[in-house]
Amino acid sequence: MTALDPAPPPADPLLLAADWQRAGLGVALATVTETWGSSPRPAGSLMVVATDGRIAGSVSGGCVESAVAEAALQALQDRRPRLLGFGITDEDAWSVGLACGGSIKVLVQPIATGPAGAVGVA
């Protein structure tokens, strides 16, 4: 940080996504679109995932990040966006539910040229 110009916060997920893309990696964005109850991160919270498995940012308090990363890697393969739901009302509540009792929806989309294609709902 210089005295003249404050630096942006470190490890900004969106800046990293651009960096990774320029470096030739496939990159997917996962964004919280809706929350209910006491979910830890608000709508707009962002996590980015690269084809080499690098991850930055978060969509929850750490409860569902690995499941989201898995979906992001799939999205990078089939180049299709998907909308994921997590929460105690889900069947998989006991495996990747939110400990806080809230629920969230996460939009996972690959960064790619051309039309996005239908959003799959999981």
Partner: peptide, 14 residues
């Protein structure tokens, strides 16, 4: 989301 959109978002933010 296209690379161009990402660039444009980052430019707005800068």
């Amino acid at each position: 989301m296209t690379p161009e959109l990402l660039t444009r978002i980052l430019r707005n933010r800068a």
